[in-house]
Computed example of a mutant assay.
Amino acid sequence: MKIYNLTVKQFLPISIEEAWEFFSSPKNLKDITPAHMKFDIRYISGGEKMYPGQVITYKLQPVPGIPVSWTTEITHVNEPHYFVDEQRFGPYALWHHQHRFKAVEGGVEMEDEVNYAIPLGILGQLANWLFVGKKVKGIFDHRFSVLEARFGK
C-alpha cells in the first residue's frame, strides 16, 4: 500500500487559544470545506468538546453526485498544541490527519499533516495521480483561503 503525504503550514494572526477553539470544534469543518462537497455532519459522540475516542460521522460528495459516508475518530488530543483524527470507515484505506498549533510572534503557526492511502493497489495509485491527490490538495488550498479571509494574513 502506497502512503501519500500532504503537509500545509499557515500563519494566522490569532492566539493559540483562539486557533484551538476554532479548529477543535467539528462544527467548524463545514465552514472550511468546499461547498460543492456538500459536507454534512451526521453525528458527534460525547458532545462538542473534543476528546480522545470521540467519533464523528459525515456525509459528503467528493465527486459530484456520489455521496460518501465517512467516520473519523479523534485519537490524540494535547490542548492547545495538537490533535489527530483518523478515518475508521470511509473512502480511504488510510487517513491520518495531524493538526498542530504553535504560538509564534504575532499569532499562531498551524500545520496540517495528512497521510493517506487509496485502496485498490495500482488502480488506487493511478486514481491518486489522476485526481485524488489534486482533490485533497484542493481541499486544503480552499481551507487556506477561507482561513486567511476569516482571520487575516
Results as ranks from 00 to 15, higher is better:
Tyr43Lys: 12
Ser45Glu: 14
Ser45Trp: 05
Ser45Pro: 07
Gly46Ala: 07
Gly47Thr: 02
Glu48Asn: 10
Met50Asn: 07
Tyr51Phe: 13
Tyr51Ser: 03
Gln54Pro: 03
Val55Glu: 11
Val55Lys: 12
Val55Asn: 05
Tyr58Leu: 01
Tyr58Glu: 02
Lys59Glu: 14
Leu60Ser: 07
Gln61Pro: 00
Gln61Ile: 00
Pro64Ala: 12
Gly65Leu: 05
Pro67Arg: 01
Val68Asn: 08
Ser69Gln: 11
Ser69His: 14
Trp70Gly: 02
Thr71Ala: 10
Thr71Met: 09
Thr71Cys: 10
Thr72Phe: 08
Glu73Ser: 02
Ile74His: 04
Ile74Trp: 02
Ile74Ala: 05
Thr75His: 07
Thr75Glu: 08
Thr75Gly: 10
His76Tyr: 02
Val77Thr: 09
Asn78Arg: 09
Asn78Ile: 07
Glu79Ala: 10
His81Val: 04
His81Met: 04
Tyr82Ala: 03
Phe83His: 08
Phe83Arg: 06
Val84Tyr: 08
Asp85Ser: 07
Glu86Thr: 13
Gln87Ile: 10
Arg88Val: 15
Arg88His: 09
Pro91Met: 12
Pro91Phe: 07
Tyr92Pro: 06
Ala93Arg: 13
Ala93Leu: 13
Leu94Trp: 01
Trp95Phe: 13
His96Arg: 12
His97Asp: 12
Gln98Phe: 14
His99Ile: 14
His99Arg: 13
Arg100Glu: 14
Arg100Trp: 08
Phe101Asn: 09
Lys102Arg: 15
Lys102Met: 14
Ala103Pro: 02
Val104Lys: 07
